[in-house]
Simulated assay, not measured.
Amino acid sequence: MSENYSRGSLNAISYLSYYFVGALVSTLGIVLGPLCAAFNKDPSFIGQVFTLMNIGMFVPIMLGGILMKKWGLQKPLVIAAALTILISALLFATPTLTMFSVAVAIIGACGGIFMTIGSYLVVRINPDEKSRSSSLIFTDFFFSLAGATLSFLLAWLFKMGASWIAMYGIMGGLGVLMLILTLRSRYPSTVAAEPEYQEASSNEPWGRSVWLLCGALFLFLLAEPIFTMWTPGYLQWRFQMLPEQAALYTTVYWVAKATGLFLNQFTVKWMKLRTFLLICTAVGLVAIALISNSANTTLILIACGAFGFFNSGLFSGLMSYGSLQVSRSSPTLISALLTCGTVGTLLFATVSSLVNSRYGLHGAVNASTCAYALLMVTLLAAIACSRAERLHQGEAVAV
């Protein structure tokens, strides 16, 4: 198989892809207030509008395999980057609610393309299982880095009087960076790559553990964005905080998560992956329960840091554990795990907005606690019927 591709540039594309999607998802709670004020709508209504972004993101993730097979890797990336730049410019020219709704749907679709191809590239250029967990976790670090940096930046910009459009100016800038990177990179052939995986894995059944881990990814990607979207408003409502004070709590979360992701790429090399997942989920469940129900703001701040740190490796860890349930993981399996997980991202705004309209902000934040509790149950069931330990017991990777 030819290795004539620019590994450094492809890694950079993967990192920027996750940073782009992290910028979209992690800042919803920060930009929600300015949007409500600008359009004179309540948070539940704007939360429903963000469902358009999630639908846009989900469609290319679901169809990612077809897109890559038909058009390769470069063309979808170039189209998505160019569309991001164009839509951001149009939003600046026509900042209406209708244009905003169209823009978030299209930018969400561009984010879906970036995340699908970015995830595939990580698997494609890291074929051995030992390095895959570490590489996926380090790539996911950039998702959290977006939350850590942009939560702070947007809170400062809004405090200085900036409009909500500043957020989409940032997205346009990321689109420019992506366009430059994608045009100057060399890519591996997706056609050439498939038989290598398919020969070993096309006839191998995935087993119940894969589908349970798909469910775990769904619950994780349902719980986390609910937390980031509603926590700032909940803290302002319950403790009469200023917006910039409430933003500090989510900033602490994202900084702790980015720190955890940077460190956990090494942790998973010496700790069994199932043990790592169980510890992270257990601590995360306790932390989110405290955030949602404690009356002590100092304890909530500490819990936000703990939640971020121990939550950090779950997405990539679950993806990696799912890929280890077969003797040789394929792009199809990675795509299935990612697609099932992304359904959580697709539904979180709708589900949490409905909970908010019925039970208020306290109920909306606790929806994240409920999803996390179900995640723990699902993970325990997946470990109980896991085949990874038997399939990979002779390899260096610890599962």
Results as ranks from 00 to 15, higher is better:
K130W: 02
A398L: 15
I66Q: 12
A23K: 01
A247D: 10
M178R: 05
I226S: 11
L235E: 08
C385T: 14
M68G: 08
W270F: 15
G305F: 09
A80V: 06
G118W: 01
G360W: 06
L35D: 13
A287V: 10
Q74I: 07
T84S: 15
T250F: 08
L154M: 13
I288S: 06
A371D: 00
R184V: 12
C340R: 01
M53C: 13
G284V: 00
S151A: 07
S163K: 10
F39G: 13
T116L: 05
F92R: 08
L63A: 12
L91E: 10
L83F: 11
F152G: 00
L301P: 01
Y249D: 02
Y197P: 01
L242D: 15
T27P: 13
Y359V: 09
A37H: 15
F138N: 04
T250S: 13
A38I: 10
L91T: 12
E244C: 02
S330H: 06
A398C: 10
N264D: 10
F218N: 09
Q48S: 14
L318F: 12
A80M: 01
T332C: 05
S329H: 12
T259V: 15
A37F: 14
F276N: 12
K269F: 01
L299W: 10
I13C: 03
G175K: 02
L361H: 07
C340Y: 08
S368G: 15
F276S: 07
S312R: 00
W71Q: 13
F239G: 11
F142D: 03
V343D: 02
R132P: 01
N203L: 09
A336T: 15
L150E: 04
P243N: 07
R387L: 03
F266P: 03
L338V: 14
F348E: 12
M376Q: 09
L278E: 07
G161Q: 11
G22S: 11
W164G: 05
I106L: 13
I180R: 00
P76L: 04
S131Q: 11
T251E: 12
V343H: 06
M115V: 13
W164F: 15
G344Y: 06
C36L: 04
G112M: 05
A193E: 15
G313N: 03
V355L: 11
A103D: 08
Y253A: 08
K69E: 11
T94S: 10
L347D: 03
L219Y: 04
R208K: 15
V102Q: 06
L179E: 04
S131N: 14
G173A: 10
N296Y: 04
R124M: 09
V176H: 00
L299V: 14
S151Q: 08
S185H: 08
L136F: 14
A148F: 12
G394S: 10
Y187I: 01
A193L: 14
T116K: 02
L248P: 00
K272F: 03
T116D: 07
K272P: 04
I137N: 11
G215F: 00
G172W: 09
L338A: 10
I291P: 05
T94N: 13
G47R: 04
A37P: 09
N296A: 05
A388F: 07
S209G: 06
L121P: 00
I61F: 02
P225S: 06
G260A: 07
M167N: 15
A306V: 12
H362Y: 04
